[in-house]
Design a binder for these strands. Structure first.
Length: 573
DNA sequence: GCCGTTTTCGGCCCGACTGTTTTCAGTCG
């Protein structure tokens, strides 16, 4: 059963949007917006909480707590229903147009009766917007352009694509004379799984040459804004990149500010305000006399707020400020902590590299151990047989003979609709390690999916649940079993949950990692490599693991081989 | 509507860019 938090957050968010369109009380709208974010990130399922417990959620007071209770009880909210009667859904939809916010949406609705994107298009075509207050020629043109963008919106960009573009532009700008330093910030630095745009930050005494070089890059498709401190472009592939140029002494404050997230910044700025300070991208200043307190490095800025430096993946206002104040920030796992790989494929099934090539690539990375886990026999397209598997094992043992890196022979089992896997205990006992994953029957009920995953966890030979949610970013929603039941089973049985490093998967997602960790689950950060180059995806899985607050202790393939073997052996006993 | 180591009232993150309203509002991040 899915948590109610998302449904509640969606309702609060919709109410906030409608309030900002009906206007009057901007701070009230913001309060609902903040409450929505807070509920969405709250670890406990709101449907299990009473009124007093609901008010424990940050940004939820008595009024919103009552509304949440009422919504959970009746499935509706009178205040929201009234707002919906006032503002048709299509008007809210208008605010999705870049450049058109709540004020203009309300204006075209009230003045022209426009209640949808299509009606707005018609109104513009008929010239009914021309000459209205706030709708000059340029504004109308921008709205039309925004509608085109929306129509062709391919959604957010995956982290690998954005990283590649960002690193390319950072390298180009770093070579511009006068550029002291340049780096990417924003959601990319926080290692979010997808990004809406790329934020770049550079230091120079004179921003002119950098801005000129930026808009002249071959990948620029369109210049959105072009000023002395900020320039925004859209690449030919539709990705927006913002470049901010600051003076050297502002680097730390600017990096902190542009890294975000919005929620984290609101928290840190609030702390500054309460201390009689003002935090902006230019520095931390004393309010009374405007004197500078800190700005050169992020460490300086955080220290002046009474905080240790907080790693970017944690900056989501998910309790990192409280943890920092208490001196309890996690020592996050890094790529350097990873000692081996537990999920990889060769050309024996659907990989494209041979066993020899994959093993050589793993050795080049300096791993202490490497597991080859080709698909098992229940996936007919892979044409796996017992004989082929045993032959691969013999070849692998020979390859590992006398070498420093230990080779583990494993398999990626298929978790069938009932939770069964490809082989019985006798054959499974011959493997060093087994991953088990869901590859089909995604449409089962939550109860069936829960039972299926719990049974897989209870199999003594299953060590890792591969890409547990099965989601594919932008293509497939993940399955929704009762995750708390699944994680409880994983913790109880000593089964690791995978953090799959494929940029389209990043599965488990960060929110589920946080929940699983609270249940005491261990994790395996696996590339699921089907080619040598896929081993490089490790950085993305590590980023996701960091967003889930994981330490090296939480990750079984950051353990020494001896400890990993003990983990596997304990489950088989 | 929420919140409190100055406060149960009076604040609420802060600044850049654009277009247009000749001094600022809207939008965005």
């Amino acid at each position: 059963m899915a948590r109610s938090n998302e449904a509640v957050a969606a309702v609060l968010r919709e109410y906030a949007d409608l309030l900002s369109i009906t206007d009057g009380e901007a701070f009230k709208a913001r309060a609902y917006e903040k409450a929505a974010r807070s509920v969405s990130g709250y670890p406990k399922d709101v449907s299990t909480l009473d009124g007093a417990q609901l008010r424990q959620i940050p940004q939820v007071g008595s009024s919103i707590a009552d509304k949440i209770s009422e919504f959970l009880r009746t499935g509706t909210l009178p205040a929201l229903e009234r707002a919906r009667e006032q503002i048709p859904a299509g008007v809210r939809e208008l605010t999705r147009i870049p450049g058109l916010g709540p004020k203009k949406a309300r204006q075209v609705y009230e003045d022209l009766g426009v209640t949808s994107l299509a009606e707005l298009r018609a109104a513009i075509d008929e010239g009914r917007l021309a000459g209205r207050r706030g709708f000059g020629d340029k504004t109308v043109e921008n709205i039309l352009h925004g509608m085109d963008l929306l129509a062709h919106d391919s959604g957010r960009t995956t982290v690998d694509v954005a990283t590649t573009v960002a690193e390319e532009v950072v390298a180009a700008l770093s070579a511009v004379p006068g550029c002291v330093r340049c780096a990417y910030a924003g959601s990319l630095r926080r290692m979010r799984e997808t990004v809406g745009d790329v934020d770049l930050l550079a230091v120079a005494e004179d921003s002119g040459p950098l801005m000129a070089a930026f808009v002249a890059l071959p990948l620029v498709g369109e210049v959105i804004a072009h000023g002395p401190t900020k320039t925004s472009i859209r690449t030919t592939t539709g990705l927006q990149i913002d470049l901010r140029v600051v003076r050297p002494e502002s680097w730390g404050a600017a990096l902190q500010y542009f890294t975000g997230s919005q929620g984290h910044n609101i928290r840190t700025r609030g702390m500054a305000v309460r201390a009689g300070l003002k935090l902006s991208e230019y520095g931390l200043f004393r309010v009374e006399d405007g004197s500078l307190v800190a700005s050169e490095t992020e460490e300086d800025v955080y220290a002046a707020l009474g905080l240790p430096w907080i790693p970017p993946p944690l900056r989501e206002d998910r309790g990192e400020v409280e943890a920092a104040l208490a001196g309890e920030l996690p020592d996050l796992v890094t790529a350097a902590d990873i000692r081996g790989e537990l999920h990889s494929h060769t050309d024996l099934t659907d990989g494209v590299a041979s066993l020899t090539e994959m093993v050589a690539a793993a050795r080049a990375r300096g791993y202490a151990y490497f597991a080859v886990t080709d698909h098992a026999k229940d996936m007919p397209m892979q044409r796996m047989t017992d004989e082929k598997m045993l032959a691969q094992r013999a070849k692998l043992r020979a390859l590992g003979e006398g070498r420093k890196m230990t080779l583990l022979h494993g398999t990626e089992l298929n978790i069938g609709p009932d939770g069964d896997v490809d082989w019985g205990p006798e054959f499974l006992a011959g493997f060093d390690v087994c991953v088990a994953s869901v590859h089909s029957h995604f449409q089962q009920s939550a109860e069936e999916l829960t039972r299926r995953l719990v049974r897989a966890c209870e199999n003594p030979y299953v060590n890792v649940i591969g890409h547990p949610s099965t989601r594919l970013l932008g293509r497939r929603q993940g399955i929704e079993p009762d995750w708390d039941d699944v994680f409880a089973a994983a913790a109880r049985t000593g089964t690791a949950m995978e953090v799959n490093c494929f940029p389209e998967r990043l599965d488990l997602p960060d929110e589920l990692i946080l929940r699983a960790k609270r249940a005491g689950v261990r994790f395996a950060v696996d590339t699921d490599a089907h080619a040598v180059t896929h081993l490089d995806n490790l950085r993305y899985g590590i980023g996701t693991a960091q967003r889930g607050w994981l330490t090296a202790e939480d990750v079984v393939n950051a353990w020494p081989l001896r400890k990993l073997r003990a983990f596997i052996a304990a489950k088989r006993r």
